[in-house]
Write a protein that binds this DNA or RNA. Structure first.
Length: 726
DNA sequence: TGCCAGTAAAG
DNA sequence: CTGCCTACTGGCA
C-alpha cells in the first residue's frame, strides 16, 4: 500500500524500529522496520573469528562477516561486522568491549533510532512516499530536500500542560495542574492523587493530542503523575504505543560547557506522541517549535531527543550522519574525562580571538562591521578538521603564525558537515530580510537553531574528548581568525578609517563623513581579501565605550551601548543584559536607554541629561517608598556547586540551603531565586528564597538602592563626563 | 590594601 | 558530549 506520510516519531521497540507517520489528512500510521544494529571490530583476525563465534552461540548476534570500511583518515580498514540481535544487549556488549585491549571498536555507542536514520538516509519531520504492508515499512522515499528552505507540517493537535503555582511547590502539596486545549484552559482541582491522574487521563483520551506542550512536564509533572498512576492503578495514556511502556525517572545531570555549569533536567518522552517541556529545552527556548523541527531534520535525531539535546549533541549527530553516509567508521568515545591542562598547555593554547581595546567615552560617526559565522566559515574554506591537520598525504597549507599544515587533497569531515549548514543559514537570513514580520520570525528562529550548532562545532574542536576534536585544529581556526581580523583592520586603516575597537570577528571603525556606500565597498574589499563575508552591522548615531569600574582610565572589551541610525539600540554587557539583575533594576536601566535612543546628535544627547536624572530619581523614590513587589526584587543566580560545598556564605548558597531545609534539593546548574530582606540578624535571615518570598514585609532598601544606582551610573556617568568635556 | 571565592558577559 | 578569558563584587586577613 502506498501512502504519503510525515515522519513524526521513531524509537527502538524490542528487536525492531517503530516509526510513526502522519498523513496530510492527520491520520496516524504506526509501522515497524527491521534494523539490525551493526558494530565493527578491528584486531587480530583469529581472535575476531573466535569472538564472533562465541557471541553467535550466546545469541547476541545474528550474523557476523568480514568487511572493509574507511577510517577517518580515508584508509581502508579490514574489520569484522557484527549484526546484533535486538537492542537490549547493547549496554552489556559495550561493558564487555570496554574491557578488551588490542581491539578497536567502531559504531558501538550510537543511539539506535539515530543510527537507523543515518543508515537509511532519512530524517524526521519531512514528507515521504511510503510503501507499507502488514504494518511493516517496505520503502520510504523523501519527497523533499533535507536542507530545503521551506518545509510544511501536517495538522498537529496540541494539549498544553502546566503548573498553577511556582514549580518548586510540589504537586499535591499546594500546587496543581493546568491543562489547555482549543483555546480553553482548566485548573484541575482534584481531591486526591488518583483523581488528578484520572482527570488528566480523561483529557488525554478525549483530545489524543499529537503534542503535549508543557512547562515543567519533564521533571515535575509527568514523573509524579506516572508514579501515582501506578500506585493508585489509574491508567494514564501518555503513549500511543499500545504495549506496556516502562519509564524510569532520574534526576537530571549537571555538566560543564564553555566554562560554565549547565543543568539539563531528566526527560519524560512519550511513545508515538511528542512531549516537549519548554522549560527543559535549549532549542525550544532559543528557536521555538520551528527551530526544533529544523534541528531535527538536519541533525537526524527524533524530535523529542532534539528538544532535550545541547547544540553539541546536534552537531555531533550531524557529523555522525555524515560519517555513516560516507562509509566512515565511527570511533568509540569512551568516557574518560579530559586531563587538566598544564600551565604550558595554557600558554600555548589560550590565544583565542583578537581584541583591540576601545577609547573610553562617547563616539560619533562610528560603524560596526562583523564577519558572518567567522569560525565555521574558516573551518570550511581552510578545510580544518581533526584529520586534515598535519596530514600525511600532502605538503598542505601552512596555518598563519602556527607550525601546522592543513591537507589540500581531501576535504575533512567537519567542513563537509558545516558547508550545507552555512549555506542554509545564509539563505534563511536572506529570506527573513525579504519577508514580512511574521514569516521573518519563523525563518529567524530556524537560522538561530543553526547558529548554535555552528558555534558549538568550533568549541568541540578544542575539546580533546569530543569524538571529532583536536586541539591543533582549534588553534588553527583561531590563528586564521586573528589573521583575518588583522587584515580587516589594515584595509580599514588604508581607507582612512580609525579602528576604535575590535573583538574576535567585529570591528568598530570611525571616520568623519562616514556613509553607507563607502562602507559597503569596504566590506566587499575585506570579504574578498579574507574569504569570509564581512557585513555592515550598522552606523551608530553614537556609541559609548564605558570605563572599567576598577580603573576609570582603562577601557573594557565587552561592554558598550549605542544607537544605530534607524533608532535601534544595541546594548552589551550592561546590568540589563545580566540574568542576575533584579527586574526593577533592569526596567530602570532599559527606561533610561530607551529615552537615550531618541537622541540623534551630540547636542540632543547632552540636552537629555536633566530628563534622565529625573527618570532615575523617580525609580529611587519608588524603591524608598517600598512600592516594588517581591517579584520586582528577585535575583536569579545559577548554583555553581552543591550547596554544601560553598566555602563562602553567598546569598546563592544561603538560598539553596534554605530550599534544602524545605526538602527541595537543587543540583549545580539549577537556578536559585531570592530576595534580600531588611533584617539585622544572622546572615541566613537576611535573604528569602523563592517560592517563600511571595509575601514579604520589608526588603533591604540600602542594598537594592546600591544595585539601582550602579545600573543608573553605568548609563549616565559616561554621558555626564562627555557633557563636561564639551 | 591585597587576596580569594564566587559570579557573569561577549565573542 | 565533563572546566574559554576577563571584569567585577564582597568579605576577610
Amino acid at each position: 500500500m502506498h501512502i504519503t506520510g510525515w515522519l513524526f516519531d521513531l524509537y527502538p521497540w524490542q528487536s525492531r524500529l517503530v516509526l510513526w507517520f502522519i498523513t496530510p489528512e492527520g491520520e496516524k500510521w504506526r509501522v515497524e522496520d527491521d534494523f539490525p544494529y551493526r558494530i565493527y571490530l578491528q584486531g587480530n583476525p583469529a581472535r575476531l573469528r573466535r569472538l564472533g563465534q562465541a557471541w553467535e552461540s550466546r545469541g547476541w548476534v545474528r550474523r557476523t562477516y568480514p568487511a572493509s570500511r574507511l577510517g577517518l583518515e580515508g584508509r581502508e580498514l579490514p574489520v569484522l561486522a557484527l549484526e546484533l540481535r535486538g537492542y537490549n544487549h547493547l549496554p552489556r556488549l559495550r561493558a564487555w568491549l570496554g574491557n578488551q585491549k588490542d581491539l578497536a571498536c567502531y559504531n558501538c555507542d550510537l543511539d539506535p533510532a539515530a543510527y537507523y536514520l543515518y543508515t537509511k538516509k532519512v530524517w524526521p519531520c519531512a514528507w515521504y512516499d511510503l510503501e507499507v504492508k502488514d504494518g511493516r515499512l517496505l520503502a520510504a522515499v523523501p519527497r523533499e530536500e533535507q536542507f530545503a528552505l521551506d518545509f510544511s507540517l501536517p495538522p498537529l493537535t496540541t494539549l498544553s500542560l502546566g503548573l498553577a503555582q511556582d514549580p518548586l511547590i510540589p504537586l499535591g502539596a499546594g500546587n496543581t495542574i493546568t491543562l489547555g486545549w482549543e483555546g480553553r484552559t482548566l485548573t484541575l482541582e482534584a481531591p486526591d492523587p488518583g483523581s488528578l491522574v484520572a482527570e488528566v487521563a480523561h483529557r488525554l483520551k478525549r483530545s489524543d493530542p499529537d503534542l503535549i506542550l508543557s512547562d515543567w512536564g519533564d521533571e515535575k509533572i509527568i514523573p509524579l503523575l506516572w508514579l501515582w498512576s501506578q500506585r493508585h492503578k489509574v491508567p494514564l495514556p501518555l503513549d500511543r504505543e499500545a504495549g506496556p511502556v516502562s519509564r524510569e525517572f532520574a534526576r537530571g545531570r549537571s555538566y560543564f560547557s564553555y566554562g560554565r555549569i549547565v543543568y539539563q533536567g531528566a526527560s519524560a518522552p512519550c511513545y508515538g506522541r511528542w512531549h516537549l517541556d519548554r522549560r527543559n529545552s535549549f532549542f525550544f527556548r532559543e528557536a521555538g517549535l520551528k527551530g526544533l523541527i529544523q534541528a531535527a531534520r538536519i541533525g537526524q535525531l527524533p524530535l523529542q531527543q532534539v528538544a532535550r539535546a545541547s547544540p553539541g549533541t546536534l552537531i555531533t549527530s550531524m557529523q555522525l550522519a555524515r560519517a555513516v553516509a560516507d562509509g566512515i567508521l565511527i570511533p568509540w568515545r569512551k568516557g574518560e574525562p579530559e586531563r587538566f591542562k598544564t600551565a604550558g598547555d595554557l600558554l600555548r593554547i589560550d590565544k583565542g580571538g583578537l581584541v583591540f581595546m576601545p577609547p573610553v567615552g562617547v563616539h560619533f560617526q562610528v560603524a560596526e562591521v562583523d564577519f558572518a559565522s567567522m569560525y565555521p566559515t574558516i573551518m570550511t574554506i581552510h578545510n580544518i578538521s581533526p584529520e586534515t591537520v598535519n596530514c600525511s598525504c600532502c605538503a598542505g597549507e601552512r596555518v598563519p603564525e602556527a607550525d601546522y599544515r592543513i591537507c589540500r587533497r581531501r576535504e575533512g569531515l567537519v567542513p563537509r558537515t558545516l558547508r550545507p549548514i552555512l549555506l542554509l543559514r545564509e539563505r534563511l537570513k536572506a529570506r527573513a530580510r525579504r519577508s514580512g514580520p511574521e514569516e521573518a520570525a519563523q525563518y529567524g528562529a530556524r537560522q538561530t537553531a543553526l547558529k548554535w550548532m555552528l558555534v558549538t562545532c568550533f568549541g568541540y574542536l578544542g575539546y580533546k574528548n569530543a569524538r571529532f576534536g583536536r586541539i591543533e585544529a582549534h588553534e588553527a581556526v583561531t590563528a586564521y581568525g586573528r589573521d583575518k581580523l588583522l587584515t580587516a583592520k589594515e584595509v580599514c586603516e588604508a581607507a582612512g578609517f580609525t579602528v576604535l575597537h575590535g573583538l574576535t570577528d567585529c570591528l568598530w571603525i570611525k571616520k568623519v563623513g562616514i556613509n553607507e556606500a563607502e562602507l559597503e565597498g569596504l566590506c566587499r574589499e575585506i570579504s574578498a581579501a579574507t574569504g569570509v563575508k564581512l557585513a555592515l552591522e550598522g552606523i551608530y548615531r553614537w556609541i559609548v565605550f564605558p570605563a572599567s569600574r576598577q580603573d576609570p582610565k582603562r577601557p573594557v572589551a565587552t561592554r558598550y551601548f549605542g544607537v544605530f541610525q534607524d533608532g535601534a539600540l544595541k546594548v552589551r554587557g550592561l546590568a540589563c543584559r545580566r540574568r542576575d539583575t533584579p527586574p526593577f533594576v533592569r526596567q530602570a536601566q532599559e527606561a533610561l536607554l530607551t529615552r537615550l535612543a531618541a537622541a540623534a546628535t551630540p547636542e540632543a544627547l547632552a540636552a537629555l541629561q536633566p530628563e534622565l536624572e529625573n527618570l532615575a530619581a523617580d525609580f529611587r523614590q519608588r524603591l524608598r517608598e517600598g512600592r516594588f513587589t517581591p517579584q520586582d526584587l528577585v535575583i536569579t543566580r545559577v548554583l555553581s556547586q552543591p550547596p554544601e560545598d560553598y566555602r563562602v556564605d553567598t546569598p546563592t548558597a544561603l538560598a539553596a540551603r534554605q530550599l534544602q531545609r524545605a526538602g527541595l534539593h537543587l543540583l549545580p546548574g539549577e537556578k536559585v531565586r531570592y530576595v534580600h530582606k531588611e533584617a539585622k540578624g544572622p546572615k541566613e535571615t537576611r535573604i528569602q528564597a523563592v517560592p517563600f518570598a511571595a509575601t514579604l514585609d520589608d526588603y533591604d532598601t540600602g542594598l537594592y538602592l546600591k544595585l539601582l544606582n550602579r545600573a543608573i551610573d553605568e548609563v549616565l556617568l559616561p554621558l555626564s563626563e562627555y557633557k563636561s568635556s564639551r
